[in-house]
Design a protein around this nucleic acid. Structure first.
Length: 491
RNA sequence: CGGGGUGUAGCGCAGUCCGGUUAGCGCGCUACGUUCGGGACGUAGAAGUCGCGAGUUCGAAUCUCGCCACCCCGACCA
């Protein structure tokens, strides 16, 4: 199998697929639209999971688990919710197979038809709110701050590895509150947690903001999102947090006695990030040599490659490497020693570049004589010769530097590809030539957004929180506008 | 769901138009040897219901019909 990958500029989608498959993150499976996450890809997901879980616990949340199946009747209680998901649901109708009486194989046993069909959850609001009904009677039972790690199924027409698969892994937070203010604060807090995670751990800059009405979650009053820019200038919605108001409480009749002894409906939020973040990680940092991982999420941060002639040399180098690795482990740095004898160093160099290991250390006979090592960094593909006694210090500093550099690089790219425009002509011009995020005044109506989408394919990604209010006129309708929105082509 | 394309060894492909020895090539794999500072080389070897089913024919990877699967571009999509 060739390790060659398509170049980014030639075909961005192909480049992305090549990296995901050839770096060993995931592959297509026998099931249409579903993927197999391979051990290396899963190891990265586990690191993400662990950190996110820690952040959820730090903000007072607990984990729980709810069923995969949702009775059809539950699902139809909230009108806009069902409208949003109905077209992409997998439905269980039978519970038994039998041998085909006419030949080989099995067929569905028609005698085993379910009284009520079960929907494979596309998200868990309905089953969870049906459960919360039994848990909540008084304001003293609130808030409920729960997170679930789970898989969900959305029968998408067209899928892409990690970015949109029929089944995907995610976490979904579902909280219940006594007041509107508290629920809004929770939704805002959690989008902040996601932004922190994206920027500090994934080294991926994000814009945080509010979704437009038409991009809002089905059943939400307000949706907040983090939006990242991929290297082709397209936007990727990387995490969402929803203020659900009392919609689900009303649909599932979840009432409580408040402090004033009045009966009221509970206020809700939900928030989630998925394995789509893996796709974001690939698309934001990688290059034509393969995957580039931020040190904080790399399953292995440093790989050692020996360069030797004969068993004697290898033995000496191995002993030296063992000592050096020990020093790195004491600092919490993860390492791997690749002493496979059937591959030459050059092959290994390319392989670890493809897999995105942040730092590579090569040690050969020359280094053994000089007491040095060759240290290469993945982000810039540069090399330096370092005295072995300084290796641990150098590598520790280098890992921090790579983490920071990846963030800076992605931020600079985003800034360079963010354009402020003041007319529709300018808007179209920018989208057609340079792409990226376009900041433009918009009258806030769904009609205008729809027209712009039909004419340019660009959508409102979010109305960013950190943008100062500014009087202006909608680039499309000319109506007054108080703030700019981010428009972009999106995944 | 519309348009286009592809199914031949683990992976990537040629052969199909115009039917004809034992179905090839590259990578990978196995064994041995030589190599090893940026994708090594030699020798020997293993590995295929040519997507599935029917038909035409002395003879089908190749022609005909039907089916299935996947990929790409759209439409759709927290």
């Amino acid at each position: 199998m060739s390790k060659e990958i398509t170049s980014r500029s030639e075909n961005y989608s192909q480049w992305y697929n090549d990296i995901v498959i050839k770096a060993g993150l995931a592959d297509y499976s026998a099931v249409r639209g579903c993927m197999v996450i391979k051990p290396y890809g899963y190891a990265i997901w586990e690191k993400m999971q662990r950190q996110l879980d820690t952040m959820f616990k730090e903000t007072g949340h607990q984990n729980a688990y709810f069923p995969l199946f949702v009775p059809k009747s539950f699902f139809s209680r909230e009108a806009s919710h069902v409208e949003g998901f109905a077209k992409e649901c997998a439905v269980v109708t039978h519970y038994r197979l039998k041998n085909d009486p006419n030949g080989q194989g099995v067929v569905v046993d028609n005698d085993a038809k379910l009284e009520e069909e079960l929907i494979v959850r596309p998200t868990s609001e309905t089953i969870i709110w049906n459960t919360y009904k039994g848990w909540i009677q008084s304001y003293r039972d609130l808030p409920i701050l729960i997170n679930q790690w789970a898989n969900v199924v959305r029968w998408e027409m067209r899928t892409r590895l990690f970015l949109r698969t029929a089944e995907f892994l995610w976490q979904e937070g579902h909280t219940a509150h006594a007041t509107k203010e508290e629920a809004i604060a929770e939704a805002e807090k959690m989008i902040g947690v996601y932004a922190d995670f994206a920027q500090k751990w994934m080294a991926m800059p994000v814009r945080v903001g509010r979704k437009s009405e038409s991009e809002r979650f089905a059943g939400a009053i307000d949706t907040y999102s983090i939006e990242a820019m991929m290297q082709d200038g397209r936007a990727l919605q990387s995490g969402t947090s929803h203020f659900l108001g009392q919609n689900f409480a009303k649909a599932f009749d979840v009432k409580f006695i408040n402090r004033d002894s009045e009966l009221d409906y509970v206020w809700a939020t939900s928030w989630g990030v998925s394995t789509r973040l893996m796709g974001a990680l690939v698309m934001v940092h990688s290059d034509d040599n393969g995957l580039v991982l931020p040190p904080k999420l790399a399953p292995t941060q440093v790989v050692f490659v020996p360069i030797y002639k004969g068993a004697d040399e290898l033995e000496q180098i191995s002993a030296r490497v063992a000592a050096l690795r020990e020093e790195l482990h004491k600092r919490g740095i993860t390492t791997h020693y690749d002493d496979r004898d059937n591959y030459k160093p050059g092959f290994k160099f390319n392989e670890y570049e493809m897999k995105g290991y942040p730092v590579r250390v090569a040690i050969g006979a020359r280094d053994m004589q000089n007491g040095t090592a060759e240290v290469a960094r993945r982000d810039t593909l540069t090399k330096q010769i370092v005295p072995q006694e300084q290796l641990a210090d150098t590598v520790a500093a280098l890992l921090d530097d790579i983490q920071q550099n990846l963030f800076n690089r992605a931020l600079e790219f985003r800034e360079q590809n963010t354009t402020v425009v003041n007319s529709y002509d300018e808007f179209k011009e920018v989208l057609n030539t340079k792409g990226g995020f376009v900041l433009a005044h918009w009258d806030g109506t769904a009609e205008t957004e729809q027209r712009i989408k039909e004419e340019t394919k660009a959508t409102v990604r979010c109305i960013p929180f950190d943008l100062e209010p500014e009087e202006g006129r909608c680039i499309y309708s000319g109506k007054p506008s108080k703030q700019r929105a981010i428009f972009a082509l999106a995944y």
